[in-house]
Design a protein around this nucleic acid. Sequence first.
DNA 1: TCAATAGTGTCTGTTAGACATTATGGA
DNA 2: TCCATAATGTCTAACAGACACTATTGA
Lengths: 228, 228
Amino acid sequence: MRDRPTAPVARAGRSPASATLDLVCCSADGRHLAVLVREGGRGTSPTLPWAALDATAPLDAAAARLARDQVGRAPGWMAQVGVVGEGRKHPAALPLSVTFVAVVPTGTPAPSGMTWIRVSELPALPARQLVMVPAAVAALRDRMDLAPIAFRMLPAEFTLSELQLMYELLLGRRLHKASFRRALQAAYLVEPTDAWRSEGRGRPAQLFRYAPRRRRGVRRSVRFELLG
Amino acid sequence: MRDRPTAPVARAGRSPASATLDLVCCSADGRHLAVLVREGGRGTSPTLPWAALDATAPLDAAAARLARDQVGRAPGWMAQVGVVGEGRKHPAALPLSVTFVAVVPTGTPAPSGMTWIRVSELPALPARQLVMVPAAVAALRDRMDLAPIAFRMLPAEFTLSELQLMYELLLGRRLHKASFRRALQAAYLVEPTDAWRSEGRGRPAQLFRYAPRRRRGVRRSVRFELLG
DNA sequence: TCAATAGTGTCTGTTAGACATTATGGA
DNA sequence: TCCATAATGTCTAACAGACACTATTGA
């Protein structure tokens, strides 16, 4: 509602913006995590999508609007990551930046002027934006057991191997197949469709969709994972 | 370094502040979590400690300075929680507020003009600050298995029952005693002292101190805890 | 037939939680 | 003595991970 910025330009008028809203939009590129990066025009360096923050609107709504405008579609999931300031360089001359992380399904095309870049091959982003990416990825990893993040990074129908690969990407480590499927079944999170997909050689895989059935929350036991 | 605000007043000069830094300082009051609240003077309502943010300094350093100035001592642990805006009321007329959460050991006296208030009995704080408290408590709960939060909310020497009670406060549920101690022993996080403490009747408890021994991080198995 | 992937059944070591028991103080 | 709390040992059901096996396609 109201005016929508279609380019990352601080808009004039209204309350003077004092912070930016920066977006780390994540997806999977094969076996790699990728983020959406706006290509730098001649001489200018690439940046993450961002906009000056109109503080009169709720933060979450402003972030959702930014994502829709920049990515071209509503993200499957998004959340606030935190604030960065500290005098690190940013394309805006504003002192603070609020980082949001968003996820979209694999295969979502990059809008014109943007590219999917693997997080392991990031270009020289502005310093302040560079620290946002690992923080955003860590936020995904931290919340993936409480929010359907991996599912929102997949199409509506997916194979269990694709789902497991997504979990492995986010966690950064391999998982045990039988164990993964047992836990998934016990959680009542997916339901099978009657469709199968054949990928190259090998037995075709059944397609599933995300269909969580209500259940009471599992109480995790206490864990002490401090490293010292 | 530089000037230090000793009262929650937006300071003039330098870069015009556009955000506040608000502190949710937590401790344990018996069997309840408590936060430090600045009493409202005649007619004014109580508030959380806060200050205008000097964005030229690193955020973490500014928050640490605020905590030291307002609480009177360096907190045992602190972290950024997030940003709140959304037009909710705040004593400062600034559009954004960055929330930090801090913990101090039980028994830390409240500075003059402030009081420890149980989170279940919060007074009518400004709307923006009211939403910070549950967010801060949730942040403690989320990170207590990766940071020594419970230990920093206790004196240097404590009994295992006190430690378990702190975990129960933060988690909001009861824990199994034998199981708790087994997990604690397996984590090599505490070492016994040669002191014992007798509390009323019952067998005296041995005192322990936090002394984590380096070990490699435990890899948690995959959990699906989505509620649907 | 072989290669490759999907999907499943069984076994085993680990562990969370329940329960019981001993230890040691105060009232 | 009784009671309350600390501390610990034992048992069991649940489960993560390893392994093996079958199923089903393309080459």
